[in-house]
C-alpha cells in the first residue's frame, strides 16, 4: 500500500495559521509525525488560504527540510504546478486532474517533463459520476491520454471518487465495482487511489466506516490511499486486508515489522 499522509492541509486550522504566519515548525512537526506513521508521500494542500505559488513552495520546502519523502502536490492549476514541481526534491505526485481533454492536454506535458505521477479523478466537467460505468468511462479517457503522451501507465493513480456513505449510500458499491475494473486498463497497471475519509463524512462512526471501506477497497484493487496515516487501527486493517488478498507475505510480527 502506498500511504499518502493527508494532514498538511490548510483545511486544518493549525496548518492554515502556520502558512499565514510562516511558522515552519508546525509544518515540520506535522511532516515528521506522518513520516513516523510510515507515510510514503505527504500531501501538501494550500487550499483557499492563498493563491500565491510562493506559499505552496514554502510549505513544500518546510516538509523537505524535515523529511525525505516525496510530495503529493494538492493542486491542479498548471501555472501553480510549473512553479512548485521544480521545488520538489523527488518526483512528486500531482493531485489531481479530471477526465477532460483540455485539462489533460495542459497538465500531462508538465507531468511528463518532470517525471511526476498524477492522480486522475474518474469524474468530468459535469461533476461526480453516479455509476460504476461512468467512472470506468472517465478513467479510460485518462488512461488513453497517458498512452497518447507516452507516459508509463504506472505513473497514473486512478481515483474512483469516494462519496459520503451517509448522504449517498448507493455510491459505495459503484465505487468498489469501478475500482475492480480500473486494474484491467493497462500494463503496467495503473495505481488505484482514493481520498478515504470522504466515505465517513458526516457520520458518527467515522473510524469504523473508514476501516471497513478501506479493506473492501483493498479487496477491489486499491493500492494507494490518502488518509490519516497516524490512525493505527486503520493502518492495521489495511495491512491485514493486503495479507488476506495475498499481496504481502504473512509473518507473525507483520504489524510490528511495518511500524518499525
Amino acid at each position: 500500500m502506498i500511504f499518502i499522509g493527508e494532514r498538511i492541509n490548510t483545511g486544518f486550522k493549525s496548518i492554515k495559521n502556520a502558512v499565514l504566519n510562516k511558522d515552519g515548525d508546525v509544518i515540520r512537526e506535522c511532516a515528521r509525525k506522518q513520516a513516523n506513521g510510515k507515510a510514503d508521500y505527504l500531501d501538501v494542500n494550500l487550499g483557499a488560504a492563498s493563491n500565491n505559488p510562493e506559499d505552496l513552495c514554502w510549505m513544500i520546502e518546510m516538509v523537505q527540510e524535515e523529511v525525505d519523502l516525496p510530495i503529493c502536490i494538492d493542486n491542479n492549476k498548471p501555472q501553480m504546478l510549473k512553479e512548485t514541481i521544480p521545488v520538489c526534491k523527488r518526483p512528486p505526485l500531482v493531485n489531481s486532474v479530471i477526465a477532460d481533454e483540455k485539462k489533460l492536454d495542459e497538465i500531462l506535458p508538465i507531468v511528463k517533463q518532470y517525471g511526476a505521477s498524477l492522480i486522475g479523478l474518474a469524474m468530468d466537467e459535469s461533476g461526480s459520476p453516479a455509476t460504476a460505468d461512468k467512472r470506468v468511462e472517465n478513467a479510460g479517457l485518462i488512461v488513453a491520454k497517458f498512452m497518447e503522451y507516452d507516459i508509463p501507465t504506472d505513473k497514473l493513480f486512478l481515483d474512483p471518487i469516494v462519496m459520503p456513505l451517509k448522504f449517498m449510500q448507493n455510491q459505495a458499491v459503484e465505487i468498489l465495482q469501478a475500482s475492480s475494473q480500473f486494474g484491467l486498463f493497462a500494463d503496467p497497471p495503473c495505481h488505484i487511489v482514493c481520498g478515504l475519509s470522504n466515505i465517513s463524512n458526516g457520520a458518527i462512526h467515522k473510524g469504523l466506516i473508514n476501516r471497513i471501506f478501506a479493506t473492501m477497497l483493498v479487496a477491489n484493487g486499491l493500492d494507494a490511499v490518502i488518509m490519516n496515516v497516524n490512525d493505527e487501527d486503520l493502518v492495521d486493517a489495511i495491512l491485514t486486508a493486503e495479507l488476506i488478498m495475498n499481496k504481502s507475505i504473512y509473518a507473525d510480527s507483520y504489524l510490528e515489522a511495518f511500524k518499525r
Binding site: I249, Y250, A251, D252, S253, E256, A257, R260
Partner: peptide, 14 residues
C-alpha cells in the same frame, strides 16, 4: 515455511 522465514528476519532485525 515462507512465513517463518520472514518472521526470523523480523526477529533478527529486532
Amino acid at each position: 515455511d515462507i512465513n517463518i522465514g520472514k518472521q526470523v528476519n523480523i526477529l533478527l532485525e529486532d
